[in-house]
Every structure is written in structure tokens, then in C-alpha cells.
Computed example of a mutant assay.
Amino acid sequence: MQRHRSGGHHTAIRFRRAGVLLLAAHLLLVCWVTLRPLDVPWVSAANLRPFAGIRADLALGAWEAAERIGKEVLLLAPLGVLLPIAGGRLDASPLGSLVRTVAAGAMISIGIELVQTGVPGQVVDIDSLFLNTLGVALAHAAVVPALRGSIRRRTEGAGLRREEPSQGRTPTISRVGVAP
């Protein structure tokens, strides 16, 4: 049976295009928020000790800690959904997809932190890397499996049948006698 590539194929392409556009828009927004120079009277030292900033935030109180930590978790969280959509793979392994997405989110966060070293008023914080990556992982785990299932059902309902392509006939090998 041949594959039917009508509405289902176009639906997947539309999702991928929308994902790429939203990903680009989100990355531009993140760059504007994190890489613009700030006019501040003083700048704290860079935080290169893991979890020191989180402990300091928790020492300020629950509300302050939730606000500061929440901002860092939410900054790159949309990447957890937008990267897989932009990739356009509906049949990806859930664990493999999570690992690829979290790795890409961590690399983007590292890139932002490295570029911040040259931006006036911005300070490098290793905890931002951890929290940004956590946000990517949580968003991916919460949304992507259900979203992929929904898109698969939608494309199959539109007529795109998912069958393995035929490999043709199995070759036959003539019998050869055993040499004396």
C-alpha cells in the first residue's frame, strides 16, 4: 500500500514552520532580556559556585526565592517545547528527545552566560545554567509527549498512513553443493 501524503503531511510541515518561527522569536526575546547592557550603580561578582545563588535566594525568604528562581526556570522553558516542534520528528524516542532537547537548552544557556561576560551590568551565574536547563527539561516532559501524540493522531486522521515502506522481494540464494 502506498503512503498517502495529503493533509497530514502538510499539517506536520505547518507545525514545524510555526515551531521554527516561534523558536526564533523566543531566542530573540531571550537575547534582548539577557544580553542588553544594564546601567547599574554596582555589579555583584560572578557566581561560579554551584547552588550558592540559589541558597542566597532561599535565605531572602520564600517569596523572593520563588520569584528569582522562577524567572530563571521560565526563561528558557519554552525551548523544551519549541526545539522538538522545530525539529519536526513525530516518531522520536521520548527519552532520546528529552536528552537532545535538554542538551541543546544547556548549550544555549552556556552560550548566553559566556556572552554575558562582555555585557556591562550583566553577571555570569552558574545557577542560571542549572535553572534554565531545569526549565527546559520540565517543559519538555510536561508538554512534548502529549503534543506529539496529538499531532500523530491528527496526521493519521487526515489520511497519512504510517506504514513501513516495502523493501521489495526477499532475494533467494540458489543452493550450492558442498565441495569434496
Results as ranks from 00 to 15, higher is better:
Leu28Asn: 02
Cys31Lys: 06
Cys31Asn: 08
Trp32Gln: 14
Thr34Ser: 06
Thr34Pro: 00
Leu35Cys: 02
Leu35Pro: 00
Leu35His: 05
Leu35Trp: 05
Leu38Thr: 13
Asp39Tyr: 09
Val40Tyr: 03
Pro41Ser: 05
Pro41Trp: 03
Pro41His: 04
Ser44Thr: 12
Ala45Met: 02
Ala45His: 06
Ala45Lys: 01
Asn47Tyr: 06
Asn47Asp: 08
Asn47Gln: 11
Leu48Arg: 04
Leu48Tyr: 02
Leu48Asp: 03
Pro50Glu: 09
Ile54Asn: 03
Ile54Met: 10
Arg55Ser: 04
Ala56Pro: 00
Leu58Val: 09
Leu58Met: 14
Leu58His: 09
Ala59Pro: 00
Ala59Leu: 07
Ala59Glu: 15
Leu60Glu: 15
Leu60Gln: 15
Gly61Asn: 10
Gly61Val: 07
Ala62His: 09
Trp63Ile: 14
Trp63Cys: 09
Trp63Arg: 15
Ala65Ser: 13
Ala65His: 12
Ile69Lys: 02
Ile69Asn: 03
Ile69Val: 09
Ile69Gln: 01
Ile69Pro: 00
Ile69Trp: 02
Ile69Gly: 01
Gly70Ile: 12
Lys71Ser: 02
Lys71Pro: 00
Val73Pro: 00
Val73Gly: 01
Leu74Ala: 10
Leu75Pro: 04
Ala77Tyr: 01
Pro78Leu: 13
Pro78Phe: 12
Leu79Glu: 09
Leu79Arg: 03
Val81Met: 14
Val81Thr: 14
Leu82Gly: 10
Pro84Trp: 11
Pro84Gly: 07
Ile85Pro: 00
Ile85Tyr: 05
Ala86Pro: 03
Ala86Trp: 08
Gly88Val: 10
Gly88Cys: 07
Gly88Trp: 08
Arg89Phe: 06
Arg89Asp: 13
Arg89Glu: 14
Asp91Gly: 07
Asp91Leu: 09
Asp91His: 11
Asp91Pro: 00
Ala92Met: 06
Leu95Trp: 13
Gly96Arg: 15
Ser97His: 00
Leu98Glu: 06
Leu98Thr: 10
Leu98Pro: 02
Val99Gln: 10
Arg100Gly: 03
Arg100Ser: 09
Arg100Cys: 04
Thr101Lys: 02
Thr101His: 02
Thr101Ile: 08
Ala103Asn: 12
Ala103Val: 15
Ala104Leu: 15
Gly105Thr: 10
Gly105Glu: 05
Ala106Ser: 01
Ser109Phe: 10
Ser109Ala: 15
Ile110Pro: 00
Gly111Ser: 14
Glu113Ser: 04
Glu113Gln: 10
Leu114Asp: 02
Val115Gly: 03
Val115Ser: 00
Val115Cys: 04
Val115Phe: 08
Val115Thr: 15
Thr117Trp: 13
Thr117Phe: 13
Gly118Cys: 06
Gly118Arg: 14
Val119Ile: 15
Val119Arg: 04
Gly121Asn: 15
Gln122Trp: 05
Gln122Glu: 12
Val124Thr: 11
Val124Cys: 02
